[in-house]
Amino acid sequence: MNLFPGILLVDDDDDYLYIARRAIERTKLHAEVRIAHDGTEALRMLGLKPGGAETVSPFTVVVVLLDLRMPGVSGWDVLRQIRESERTRALPVVMVSTSSRPEDVVRSYDSGANSYVVKKLDAGYPGGFVAEMARYWIELNQPCRQAGGQTAPA
C-alpha cells in the first residue's frame, strides 16, 4: 500500500512527462508521480473506467495535471468525467497546455478546472513550473484536500 500522496500526470508528450517527473522528483516532495499517456488511461487509473481501478486507488491521487489536447479522449473529456463522478468531484485538476487561447482558458474554467497553466520554457531548471505546482498542491494546499483520507502528511 502506497502512503504517499499521488500526482497524476496526464499527457501524450513523452518528453514533457520525462522532464516533469524529473523536476517533481528533484523537489524531494514526498509524493508519488503517476503517469497516464492518454485520457482513457487516466480515467482507468482514476477508477472512472472499468478495468483499471485496482492499478491505482483513486484516493491516493491528490492532484491531476491534465493536458488539454490529446488524441482520443481530450483533457476536457477527462475533466468532465472527474467532475461528474461523486467520488472524484472535489479532486483538484490543473489544466496544463501549450495553448494560451482565451477560448481554451475560459472553457477549461467553465468545465471546472481549478487552475490553468500554460507550458512555458523555464528560465530556471527544466520543468520547474510543474514542480512548483506540485509543491503547491501537495504541501501548501493540503488542508483543502477532500479525498486524501489515506494519504500521509509530507
Partner: peptide, 10 residues
C-alpha cells in the same frame, strides 16, 4: 512547441 521545449529542456 513540444519538440522545441524538449530540445530546450534536454
Amino acid at each position: 512547441r513540444s519538440p522545441i521545449a524538449a530540445v530546450f529542456n534536454y
